[in-house]
Design a binder for these strands. Structure first.
Lengths: 166, 166
DNA sequence: TATTGTTATACTCTATAACTATA
DNA sequence: TATAGTTATAGAGTATAACAATA
């Protein structure tokens, strides 16, 4: 992780993290683009989450999958793929992994035998509980950065970007 | 693009984009996590940018590279890799491509002959100008979603997340 | 004919480690 | 010894297209 972690940004006026001693890098118009800062914030959040969880196989996307299955027991792979915005073909390998680790159960639908119904196993629920706890801690840190009074507004704006841009 | 574009989200109360007619998917705790919405917003922004630009090789990361080179003429690859938060090895291929397309010039540093100094070519500047224009249009749309009065605050929060999380 | 899920395949992005050429 | 950049290699994530089973 040594090389890639160079994205550290020691202070506000040096957001892209030029190393100590060097002249700071100019951002030009990037400095005012929401999209650019969205990317930096998302990457930072992603890395912080991964680091907190530890398991390199349980990234935010896997956490989201487990949550979606837990919250929508019996969801089909196609529905899950739509909900997570990925093609169904990309789910096969991820689910294979989750099933093999004993976290998810695939069972044939009795009515429509083309479909699988997805559920969490008891172990899956335990792992999800732990992950959710980690995610809560992680998000608490984000809350503190944003400020508790601004959180709802901030969430609303992010959600609007996601929905109105597609 | 048909399959993967299923991530559309037709209305606010159905943020993950379950298809028409189907019961909406429950998000559970994800609904309140900043990290989750950060990811959705970033992906939506990324896709919208790519679609607006057209050229599948000129994604936001390439745009950022070109801008950073333009704003910091003569920057070395290592400095650029730090500024963009990626390992230097990942830059080789991207720069090869940009050089081959005639957008970027790699020239040996006279003083330290291990280093390259990066510059944009005239064509590179033209392409960057076009990209910047597209990026401005794209970001204007984001501005409108966020609201002009809230933009500075929103940018500040995103930047704080990126800097304080690492 | 259409849909569910899988497979084959390919492309991109990223990282680590080992290498070279310099310093 | 240390640094700049390249190469070799690997892994994750994504997509499209073709396919088998089922509807």
């Amino acid at each position: 992780m040594a090389g890639g972690k160079a994205a550290r940004a020691p202070r506000e006026d040096n957001p892209t993290g030029a190393a100590r001693g060097e002249p700071p890098v100019r951002l030009g118009p990037l400095a005012d683009f929401i999209g650019f800062h969205l990317r930096l914030a998302q990457e930072a959040s992603f890395r912080a989450f991964a680091q907190r969880v530890g398991d390199p196989k349980l990234k935010p996307s896997r956490f989201a999958m487990l949550t979606l299955i837990h919250e929508n027991p019996g969801i089909t792979q196609t529905a899950l793929s739509r909900a997570s915005g990925r093609d169904k073909s990309t789910l096969t390998a991820a689910l294979d992994d989750l099933v093999q680790r004993g976290l998810v159960l695939r069972e044939k639908d009795a009515g429509d035998r083309r479909s699988y119904r997805l559920h969490l196993t008891a172990k899956g629920r335990r792992v999800l509980a732990r992950l959710t706890e980690k995610a809560r801690e992680h998000d608490l840190k984000l809350d503190r950065i944003v400020g508790p009074d601004r959180k709802r507004e901030f969430l609303r704006l992010l959600a609007r970007i996601a929905t109105e841009l597609e």
